[in-house]
Design a protein around this nucleic acid. Structure first.
Length: 371
DNA sequence: GAAGCGTGGTC
DNA sequence: TGACCAAGCTT
């Protein structure tokens, strides 16, 4: 298709073009991805499925979300059903997916929708925004996809597509408002939800971070960054800092076929999740200090240091744990705040992946803890 | 506004 | 292999 005069102008001046929504939707109708939470073409989306998927998809890949979405939907088919669950059940089901505050907020949101909204999600961006775990992106996504509101969620995909299309020089996150404003010009009047999903699909499959497939892009003739040949350098971003290595010790204590565990504090890192007792995690800490934070266990003949280390990388710091093991007599009691659980039933605990690694290392049987 | 918050995949 | 990225939210 030859570029219209308006689109040639867009190429030079990075100005929104009224043809973008139409081009985008035409592409979407041919190339949309089939995803478990997506309605069939032309059908109304189920707000519960849209919400559940959007929460799971925050900073998480489609591939990782798939099985979790199916599991949740099978166990809790409606927001009312989820609202009647317990937070601990939700955390157990969420274990392994990461960012556990999402699971706590998911449950809190289900309770709020059931209790304060008669079991129906608010159908406006503002109404949705007031619910736990729903921020600017998710509110706009649900409002557009589930309720057809004329708004545009801006995720990492859409930031990339839009920043390339208009070659926006400002670095993120400062550029967020400008990109958000430009993104809204890409929303169709009638099909705002499809417009949003079209941009996300485009970002996920064509306008990728590296080696974008510009030849296949419906907006390629209009893309300011492509005209300059530096697509991959967008979006501009402020440099991010990686955290310092922290070290600590973890203590794997068995009593016959049971393991000593405790529950982490409700908030913060791995909040509300199950762990084995351990030391603080501190940059520059040495083994001896960490070792001294072992739980007081009468009857422990000696701690055994497991050869090797458990390494784990969080978003904001890498972690290196030394693992100590001990076996206590059959009738030993768990220290205050801790409990013994059957090793065979660990799969039912809310165990973050870090702890699965620690326990597998400590038990030394090479068997991963099933999920 | 910046920092805290998981995990897995990619190059 | 370390850095980056993935449908961000909360404080």
């Amino acid at each position: 298709m030859p570029a219209s005069p308006a689109r040639q102008k867009a190429r030079r001046q990075a100005v929104p073009d009224s043809a973008y929504p139409r081009l985008l939707l035409a592409w979407y109708d041919r190339h949309r991805r089939a995803l478990p939470w997506r309605a069939l073409p032309g059908q109304a989306a189920d707000p519960y499925r849209v919400w559940l998927s959007e929460i799971m998809l925050q900073q998480t890949t489609v591939k990782a979300v798939g099985p979790y979405f199916e599991k949740f939907l099978a166990r809790w088919p409606s927001v009312a059903a989820l609202g009647r669950a317990s937070q601990d059940d939700v955390l157990r089901m969420w274990a392994g997916l990461g960012y556990y505050s999402r699971a706590r907020n998911l449950f809190a949101c289900a309770v709020a929708v059931s209790r304060d909204h008669g079991g129906a999600f608010p159908d406006t961006e503002v109404g949705l925004r007031a619910l736990p775990g729903i921020g600017p992106y998710t509110a706009a996504a649900i409002a557009a996809i589930a309720f057809g509101r004329h708004c545009m969620p801006v995720d990492g995909n859409i930031e990339r597509v839009v920043s390339r299309l208009f070659a926006t020089e400002d670095a993120l996150p400062q550029a967020k408002p400008k990109i958000s404003q430009l993104a809204l010009t890409l929303a169709g009047e009638a099909r705002a939800g499809d417009s949003a999903q079209a941009l996300m699909d485009l970002g996920a499959t064509i306008c990728t971070p590296k080696k974008p497939a510009c030849a296949l892009c419906p907006l390629n003739e209009d893309c300011a960054a492509r005209a300059r040949g530096d697509q991959e350098t967008f979006p501009r971003k402020a440099p991010k800092v990686t955290g310092k290595l922290r070290r600590g010790a973890a203590f794997v204590v068995t009593r016959g076929d049971e393991l000593l565990v405790r529950t982490r504090a409700e908030k913060g890192l791995l909040g509300g999740m199950t762990e084995v007792p351990g030391s603080d995690w501190i940059a520059g800490q040495d083994d001896t200090i960490a070792r001294q934070q072992a739980p007081a266990l009468p009857g422990v003949a000696r701690w055994q240091r497991k050869p090797g280390l458990v390494n784990h990388v969080f978003t904001h710091f890498p972690l290196e744990l030394v693992v100590y093991t001990a076996a206590v007599p059959a009738r030993s009691r768990a220290p205050d705040g801790m409990r013994f659980v059957k090793i065979a039933t660990l799969q039912h605990e809310a165990l973050p992946n870090l702890m699965r690694k620690v326990i597998a290392h400590g038990l030394g049987d090479g068997k991963p803890i099933r999920r």
